[in-house]
Nucleic acid binder design. Sequence first.
RNA 1: GGAGAAGUACCCAAGUAGGUCGAAGGGGACGGUUUGCUAAACCGUUAGUUCGAGCAAUCGGAGCCAGGGUUCGAAUCCCUGCUUCUCCGCCA
Length: 424
Amino acid sequence: MLDLKSIRNNPDLLRKALEKRKENFDIENFLKLDESRRELLLKVEQLKNKQNVDSKLIPQYKKEGKETSSLMEEMKVLSDEIKGLDLKVRDIDEEIERIMLTIPNIPNDSVPPGETDDDNVEIRKWGQPKAFDFDPKAHWEIGENLNILDFSAAAKVTGARFTFYKGLGARLERALMNFMLDLHVDKHGYTEVFPPFMVHRNSMVGTGQLPKFEEDSFKVSGTDYFLVPTAEVPVTNMYREQILDEKDLPIKHVAYSACFRAEAGAAGRDTRGLIRQHQFNKVELVKFTTPESSYEELEKLTRDAEEVLQILEIPYRVVKICIGDLGFTAALKYDLEVWMPSYNRYVEISSCSNFESFQARRAGIRFRKTMKDKPEFIHTLNGSGVAIGRATACILENYQQKDGSVKIPEALKKYLNGIDEIKA
RNA sequence: GGAGAAGUACCCAAGUAGGUCGAAGGGGACGGUUUGCUAAACCGUUAGUUCGAGCAAUCGGAGCCAGGGUUCGAAUCCCUGCUUCUCCGCCA
């Protein structure tokens, strides 16, 4: 959410941002609504002042033995008028709130132009796509051949876009999870949290998944709960409605969670394998920073995520997301993309974003510089560090050998009890 | 799931036969006196927040878990919800 006052004072900033994002939105009308709200507010507050002052007369009159019934009659009229106006104000407030929640974030100036992910700009590249001296297989094929992935069992038990990991497959997934968590905790200084996998509606609104993208989420029927689409939601909302101390910043958390996505609109895309599932595992990095340091912290966060791939020796590149691909909540976003032989291209494995105060304003997360200062909104950032399912897929493909077996990356061996390859 | 109790400012806590209560008191924090320094003692300050009007000083509205309701008027009465605690049941 943006700041209503700054929209009021500088509508051009928003106008230009929305133009870039190709969003239609009637700012003039919105500002008129805001103006009418303030007019009404002024009126009703004056009446309330009168109500407060005059109602104090009643006990006083009673004490003095004066007649109060005519005054009370007047007050009744006043009270009814106030109630009517209050109702109007409330309606307008709700309308303004509803609209504010659907206005996207203002992109950072450095966001490149463009419409689709083809227009994202490569920032740097690490490693070389491996040249195979045989015909490399796709990870779903490798996984099924090795009996470590079972998509059809999951289809039988649950449905499409789910999977069973079995044996060393399950263990590899678990090893990756622990490896990533350990790295971010021990080397990068993040504090680990293990969050709830369900959150209520307000948390989803807080990080920006709702109200606009409800069809992407899984709602738990009979409750107000949603399955988390990412640990970003519970971990960011951990500090909702709070005022933090500047001396505690930046706050850095790393969290594992299962992630649940309805993948509405993705029918027919990446239907095979681990790339696009309704449930997947992810290690997420979340930061709370001062406005001054958030972009620097974004760079660090991105490097922290990259290190996962470097240690696993997986070739990847970093792209800066263009305006058309940026998403609703981010001001700036980098994706990490790993080389996937089966796709013969780089595939997203991590998104690292700075939301500036967009989420903080929705979730009410603020900080205070000193006791005397007014609280201001914090900046929130997050990034996958990294998606585990996709990491498994990419290890299977990049570490596959001619005989169908898969080598275990050096760094993971200790998490797999020293095993150095998975074979049939 | 059943039965009870509770939710007041940074913390603890008083406050219901509805009316100068936006709220006693204590702790803490901050400032001061004292002091070589610290502690103690004493004095003082302490609604933070949020919305609106105004160039500003300042003024006004809201806020006693949340949302509704009753009333001229609600921290105080009624309803709903959330959370916490205790007991019982069940369960990993």
